[in-house]
Design a protein around this nucleic acid. Sequence first.
RNA 1: GGAGAGGUGGCUGAGCGGUCGAAAGCGGCGGUCUUGAAAACCGUUGAAGGGCGACCUUCCGGGGGUUCGAAUCCCUCCCUCUCCGCCA
Length: 431
Amino acid sequence: MLDPHLIRADLDAVARRLARRGVELPTARLSELEGARKAAQIATQELQQERNARSKAIGQAKARGEDGASLMAEVGALGDRLQAAERRLEEIQDELNEVLLGIPNLPHDSVPDGRDEADNLEVRRWGEPAAFDFAPRDHVDLGAKLGLLDFESAARIAAARFATLSGPLARLHRALIQFMLDLHTTEHGYREVYVPYLVNADSLTGTGQLPKFEQDLFKIQRPDADGALERSLYLIPTAEVPVTNLVRGEILEAEDVPRRYVCHTPCFRSEAGSYGKDTRGMIRQHQFEKVELVQIVRPEDSYAALEQLTAHAETVLRRLGLPFRTVALCAGDMGFSAANTYDIEVWLPGQQRYREISSCSNFEDFQARRLQARWRRPQGKKPELVHTLNGSGLAVGRTLVALMENCQDREGRIHLPAALHPYMGGVSVIG
RNA sequence: GGAGAGGUGGCUGAGCGGUCGAAAGCGGCGGUCUUGAAAACCGUUGAAGGGCGACCUUCCGGGGGUUCGAAUCCCUCCCUCUCCGCCA
């Protein structure tokens, strides 16, 4: 959520910055609501003040042993007016809040202009795509040839857009998770956490998935005692949600502040809007594993943290020897809650292009405001909002795809990088 | 699932219809003392919102209700703890 003060103070500047994302701020409606809010709030508070003063007088009269009946008669008439004023104020605030919750974050000044993916800016590139002296297969063909990757059984068990892995490929998948967790905990200073995979609506509102993107989520309805459907939970679309919510409603002490978490979870995405994209293979699935990096930092440190976190994610690819490039997302391509985002894209020989394997974002105080996640500066000042960041470190399924496609030989065998050998029980070649 | 007990400020914890936004302790901050620190002592210290301001409003797990007035009474939901049952 944006700072309401900022919106009040300079609505046009906010609108201009949002226009870079291709978002039109409903300025007329906002200023109308804000005006109504102010009037209603002042009116309500005046009535409350009057009621409080008179009620107090009744109390004092009674304490003196007086009757107070005449005073009570005076206040009676106030009740209805107060209630009406309170209702009206609540209505306006609900409406205002609804609008506010639907406004995306402001892009940082350093974010390049642009409408979509095509306008993203490459900031660096690492590794050389291998020159194959044969036509490289994509992971679907490789998996089928190896007999270790199968979409039909997954469709039978569940539905389209699921996959089953078996044997050494299933082990490789697990090995990648262990490798990533070990790297980030032992070398990059993250604390490993295990969290719920089902979360409530408040958590999703906190990180920004709700209210706007409910259609992307799998929702679990829980029948209550009467069989009525209430108290829904949602399957997490990313560990970002439960992990960032670790600090929801907290006031952290200064020495407790940078917090760095790493967490492996499955992720579940309904992605109702994107059918038809990446239908082949395991690039876009309803269920996938991810190792996520989350940082809770002091506001002044968040941009340094973004560089650091992105580098931590890149390190995974470096260790695996997978060629990648890092792009700065343009304003139009960034996610709802992000102020600044780097995508890391890995080279996929099967597609002859770089594909997103990690997205590292600084949310500044946007999520923190929704979460009421705060910290106290050393000198015992007022609590201030923290800044939050996260990034995949990495998406496991896509890493598996990249390994298969980049490390294949003419016969369709997969030659694993040395970094994974300890996690594979000595197996260095699959197939 | 059954029975019971609870949810109060950064933390612990009192209050159970009327100056209670809330005692006390811890912690934090400021000061005295000290070469410095600790200890001791004194003072101070919740959050959010509104108003140009003097100030005002809201908040005692969430929501609803009773009342002139609710942390305190009622309803409901959520959560925590103890015992029993069941269970990976």
